[in-house]
């Protein structure tokens, strides 16, 4: 158990080190003048020189790296040229918006995908199985930004059910006092149901877009692992012992089938965090993804670097969480070490 934990922590540390090295390498080792990147496209010669000295770019590479790590540990991600703010402040201000959207998308997706996958496996070859196959194949083929546009066309323009697909809250409402940064939770804490509904309405379309996107891999994996478990010996034994189908499927098969699905979640997160950027752009969602896109277009490099770093660290930590969860659910994993 401790060996496993130690190994897992080792992997996490390696990943974080990799993230730091790569984000450093992206700017310093690649061709081009780093000072020019950070000074932005409109900078004069003097401004570039100033940035060079300020960032220590006139020093040797290893010293630059040490300084980079020191800056990061102090939470100094540089300054954004477009907003004029420290990048870390912009990112922390916008992170809850992205997190709320991604989590909402993931939860909706899991709530649909897992029952669908289980049903498809239990009734293999039936109508529902075919539906799940179509969903799985169509889901991976849909460009996430295109799905978002289609949804807003139908539900906003055609049917008028959804509010205008711009941002987290209609301008007539003001944001609830910040506690968690999640509008849905904050508005409930403040006891303001009207804002809650308004925020929920804004969230539905972008979250649905993300959900449709991540539906495919989860459904596919649930179906496959459920099929494998259903044909195993212990399920046969449970059936032969006369247990009800419900008990066999839910207690015996489902719990075991869940394990590979949790492993897939790591991959799903990789896609989801990327897709998040596109969805934020489509729905003008004020998260870190749209922040990075705006900075990219303005050739403002520090925010992009900070964004890549934050996303990668979050992804590494999510993977760690998934692995630990795996150990909690499956005692065999704990015993094996």
């Amino acid at each position: 158990m401790f060996l496993r934990m130690g190994k897992r922590v080792g992997i996490t540390l390696f990943s974080i080190a990799a993230v730091i090295v790569i984000t450093f390498a992206l700017t310093r080792i690649l061709p081009g003048d780093t000072a020019e990147y950070f000074a932005g496209p409109a900078a004069t010669k003097e401004a570039i020189q100033e940035v060079r000295v300020k960032l220590g770019l006139d020093k040797p590479k290893y010293q630059q790296f040490i300084r980079y790590v020191q800056d990061l540990s102090r939470g100094d991600f540089g300054q954004s040229l477009t907003t004029g703010q420290p990048v870390i402040r912009d990112l922390t201000a916008r992170l809850p918006a992205s997190a709320e959207l991604t989590l909402a998308g993931l939860i909706v997706s899991i709530l649909i995908a897992i029952p669908l996958g289980v049903l498809a496996a239990v009734k293999e070859g039936s109508f529902i199985d075919h539906i799940s196959r179509v969903v799985a194949t169509a889901g991976v083929s849909l460009p996430v930004f295109f799905t978002g546009l289609l949804l807003s066309y139908f539900f906003y323009f055609k049917l008028g059910w959804a509010p205008s697909p711009l941002g987290r809250l209609d301008i007539i409402y003001s944001a609830p006092p910040q506690v968690t940064g999640f509008y849905l939770i904050d508005s409930l804490i403040a006891g303001d149901l009207e804002v809650f509904w308004a925020a929920l309405k804004q969230l539905i379309l972008p979250a649905a877009t993300l959900a449709i996107f991540s539906l495919a891999p989860i459904t596919r994996m649930t179906r496959a692992s459920m099929l494998a478990v259903l044909s195993s010996d212990f399920v046969r034994t449970a059936r032969a012992s006369g247990l009800s189908t419900r008990k066999v499927i839910l207690t015996y098969a489902f719990r075991n089938a869940l394990l590979p699905v949790i492993t897939t979640l790591g991959m799903v997160f990789s896609f989801l965090l990327g897709a998040n950027v596109l969805v934020e752009k489509v729905f003008a969602w004020p998260g870190i993804g749209s922040y990075a896109v705006e900075a990219l277009i303005a050739s403002d490099f520090a925010p992009v670097q900070g964004f890549v770093l934050v996303m990668a660290v979050m992804y590494v930590l999510l993977n760690l969480m998934i692995d630990l969860l795996y150990g909690v659910i499956d005692p065999r994993v704990r015993m094996a070490a």
């Binding site: 989801l272 950027v277 990668a312």
Partner: peptide, 15 residues
């Protein structure tokens, strides 16, 4: 270690 699309964004931004 990176979410892949995010890494792609970073690479294009840097290169």
């Amino acid at each position: 270690a990176f979410p892949l699309f995010v890494l792609a964004m970073g690479i294009v931004a840097a290169l």
